[in-house]
Design a protein around this nucleic acid. Structure first.
Length: 215
DNA sequence: CACAAGATTCTCT
DNA sequence: GAGAATCTTGTGA
């Protein structure tokens, strides 16, 4: 973390990381680095909040009941791709999980800015640092992630990828129901780093449960 | 072709 | 905390 280069971010997580149980992947993505390189420079942040959307028995999932449209086609493709779509005019980014034709994803809801904070602030209209990436739409704007990334391979280190970040080991994590997914208030499929200030909703009408530490 | 629906965010009270 | 803005996509006439 002290090299002054981006070498520590250059090893993308491999496809096998994503080809597993989406709940496990959602938990294990906490603490990892989301990295974005453009001609303007390098931006990266630690993932502090994620949500799993399941191919099976999950009415909150875009692919519920095998529903397949142009928008969600990427969900049915290979793991280790980005599923980017719009909600209320804002881009949101997920990682595609599990093998082809199994349409599970993990939504990245918040990151903690680490590198390229000035560039992120520029893209976000110079809001305070604490608001740069606290929310799925905000972090996409901060990292200049858009629909052009739908289907992008995030295992190659080309422009947009996710890398390991050993510093996060031992950090406490909690779970809760997902945010703004009214269909399934009972499913605790949201995971976040306990007490991290960049988590989008630390308080809410839902229960949060301590669920362990990062391995 | 019209229209409703969001895995959101911002701007007020 | 409530309400509006936002804009693409999916669906049904």
């Amino acid at each position: 973390m002290t090299t002054g280069t981006d070498l520590e971010f250059t090893d993308p997580l491999p496809l096998e990381f994503y080809n597993r149980d989406p709940v496990v992947v959602a938990r294990e993505l906490l603490g990892k680095m989301l990295v974005r390189r453009t001609r303007q420079g390098l931006c990266a942040g630690r993932i502090v909040e994620s949500e799993a959307y399941l191919a099976q028995n999950d009415p909150g999932c875009h692919a519920y009941g095998g529903r397949r449209t142009n928008r969600n086609a990427t969900m049915f493709g290979q793991p280790g791709r980005a599923y980017v779509y719009l909600c209320h005019g804002k881009a949101l980014i997920c990682a595609v999980i599990e093998p082809e034709d199994t349409a599970s994803v993990v939504l990245i809801r918040a990151i903690e800015p680490i590198t390229g904070i000035e560039l992120m602030a520029e893209r976000r209209g110079n809001v305070p640092t604490c608001d740069l990436t606290r929310g799925p739409g905000k972090l996409c704007q901060a990292l200049a992630i858009g629909l052009q990334h739908d289907g992008h391979d995030i295992t190659k280190g080309t422009g947009l990828w996710i890398a390991d970040h050993p510093d996060s080991k031992g950090v406490a994590i909690s779970k809760s129901p997902r945010i703004n997914v009214w269909a399934t208030p009972d499913l605790e499929l949201r995971f976040f780093i306990t007490g991290n200030p960049y988590v989008s909703k630390s308080r809410g009408p839902f229960q949060t449960t301590f669920t362990g530490v990062i391995a």
